[in-house]
Design a binder for these strands. Structure first.
Length: 538
RNA sequence: GGCCACGUGGCGGAGUGGUUACGCAACGGUCUGCAAAACCGUGUACCCCGGUUCAAUUCCGGGCGUGGCCUCCA
């Protein structure tokens, strides 16, 4: 199937033809690891994960190389390190900060259903490549040394500004920052700069005696070069990176390698707002991925629901992240997954055969409708419409196909399907049933999100209240006070049976009373033609 | 000030030069002792003004509005 992608450089959507179909190469700017990733950071990670999955589908899983860097040398990191570990030598503090943040980031994006990229290079491990590039640029006259800095000379590149569609003169006219005196041109940017005492430092290139550290832009040119070559297929990132970051990457790589292009397609995701406002700490609407997973608007949100919400709209459009949208997404995901698991439920035991569900998912391909929607510049919105269409037809084959499509979009993971299948039970004589049940839900959610640290903290919370969590099998979870692990379930079943008897006897006053009583316990009943089913209210 | 996007029904959000997007909510119905769920059906739309056209929400121009970038930022 023909893949079309929008290219920021040419501002058009055109057919994607890889430089080498046996090795399709994509680079995406990754996080600077100094703090929890916020929900806006999640967007490019999810968007390009979808593209990664699509490319793997089209060209084969072994024929796609996806590189996402980790920036671990940066002023913000230095500042945060000094702030959090004032007693430690700076370099040690920096390592603590970057290691911790790096782990948080990976936990968070895994919860959002993102595959790990093929390579995740760290800037500090590629100083040699950066210096090699800098030496080339100095030798070719595209860069110069001034005051212990190495600067890129933008005037040496005729079409500098093409990506951002901005001429040098326009930029200078609009500049609002004071210009360092050593720059030949106000728009010249740093490739290498001197380190202050105590800061991370490496021997400098270009004959500079004092040790220094790289500028921000050079790392991406260096790492994409190492892992993808001088030219590659796709370069992605947030739209805010167009200028100056990507513009400068292009300048560095093209001048160093004398190539007409750095990447064939430049892809940029739109920004995210929260409740109609720009996300900012000062506005109090700054929300991290971690917070979304643990507690936002008073509840936890499964990674699948966050991802589903994110994919509702096209990646280039701005997205307004609202509580209302998220509630809808979570509801829809729950509905769909209920449908999926329903086809492998043993009618006698009520247990769900997850192995069968996943082996059926693995044994087939995503649907034509979904793949073709994604092939149209990642039109996830249309892909979702296609999935909804097969949801409407409640027949087995279509539901399995629906599960495959969800898995293809990265929305359906084994843990998620487990989560939605779990029986939430609370032993009936527990003091505050609702509170205990909330903790149980949080616990399952945490496990579904792979956040075992949070899960075990909840186990502790329960233990302090004299409760413990018991998992009898993958589809059943109870919080119990004693040895009688199924007490709650037994109580409910007995009440349901009693109600059925009352209904058969037309004693509706009694049957309604029992239903109210169960409702008080948090149990909701559904009368179907096959009998009465019950579930814990959510 | 310069540059770049966007403006679709109550809400979210696709798409198209003439024909139902879709989802949620709403309304009507089927089912049901009641309720819920499920299923079936219905309605309301394309910011404003001008132009091109037989025909524009869709193309062009202008206006208004919103957002982003120009400084670290996904």
């Amino acid at each position: 199937m023909e893949l079309k992608l929008y290219d920021t450089l040419t501002r058009d959507k055109r057919v994607f033809v890889p430089l080498d179909p046996n090795n399709v190469r994509m680079y995406v700017c990754g996080p600077t690891v100094y703090d929890f990733a916020h929900i806006g950071n999640a967007r490019p990670v999810i968007v390009f994960d979808v593209l990664f999955r699509l490319l793997r589908h089209l060209y084969g899983a072994d024929h796609v190389t996806y590189v996402r860097n980790i920036t671990d040398v940066d002023d913000k990191i230095n500042a945060r390190a000094a702030e959090e570990y004032p007693g430690l030598p700076l370099n040690e503090a920096i390592r603590k900060i970057t290691e911790k943040t790096d782990k948080q980031f990976h936990d968070d994006v895994a919860a959002l259903g993102c595959l790990p990229p093929t390579v995740e290079p760290r800037a500090t491990e590629h100083i040699a490549e950066m210096k090699a590039l800098i030496e080339r640029l100095v030798a070719s006259g595209n860069a110069y040394v001034a005051d212990g800095n190495v600067l890129f000379s933008v005037r040496s590149m005729p079409d500098y500004g093409k990506l951002a569609k901005r001429s040098l003169d326009e930029m200078i006219a609009g500049a609002r920052v004071e210009v360092a005196p050593y720059k030949r041109d106000p728009m010249d940017f740093i490739l290498w700069k001197p380190s202050k005492p105590g800061e991370p430092a490496w021997p400098s290139p270009a004959g500079i005696a004092a040790p220094g550290r790289p500028g921000w832009h050079i790392e991406c040119s260096a790492m994409s070069w190492k892992y993808l070559g001088e030219m590659f297929d796709v370069h992605g990132g947030g739209i805010d990176l167009v200028f100056p970051h990507h513009e400068d990457e292009i300048a560095q790589s093209r001048c160093a390698f004398h190539t007409p292009l750095m990447a064939n397609f430049w892809m940029h995701n739109g920004f995210l707002q929260v409740e109609g406002e720009k996300m900012a700490k000062s506005l109090g609407n700054f929300v991290t991925i971690r917070e979304m997973l643990h507690n936002w608007h008073g509840r936890t949100w499964p990674g699948a629901a966050l991802r589903w919400a994110m994919l509702q709209m096209h990646y280039r459009e701005p997205i307004d992240w609202t509580h209302g949208n998220l509630v809808r997404s979570a509801d829809e995901i729950l509905q769909i997954l209920n449908l999926v698991r329903g086809f492998h439920r043993d009618p006698n035991t009520g247990k769900i055969n997850f192995d069968r569900i996943f082996s059926e998912i693995d044994s087939g391909n995503p649907s034509e409708a979904v793949v073709s929607a994604l092939c149209d510049d990642l039109n996830t919105s249309r892909a979702i419409t296609a999935i909804r269409a097969s949801k409407m037809k409640r027949e087995r084959g279509l539901t399995i196909q629906l599960a495959r499509d969800l898995a293809f979009l990265g929305v359906l993971k084994r843990n998620d399907i487990l989560y939605y299948s779990m029986f939430h039970g609370v032993e009936s004589n527990v003091g505050d049933k609702h509170e205990a049940m909330n903790i149980a839900v949080d616990y399952e959610m945490a496990r579904a999100n792979g956040d075992f640290q949070f899960a075990s903290s909840l186990v502790e919370t329960l233990a302090n209240a004299g409760l413990r969590i018991i998992e009898t099998d993958p589809s059943s979870l109870l919080i119990s006070k004693g040895a009688d692990e199924r007490a709650f379930e037994r109580v409910v079943k007995a009440r349901v049976a009693a109600r059925d008897a009352a209904r058969r006897a037309k004693n509706f006053a009694e049957s309604d009373r029992i239903r109210d009583e169960l409702k008080q316990m948090g149990v909701v009943l559904h009368d179907t033609k096959d009998g009465t089913t019950w579930e814990i209210a959510r």
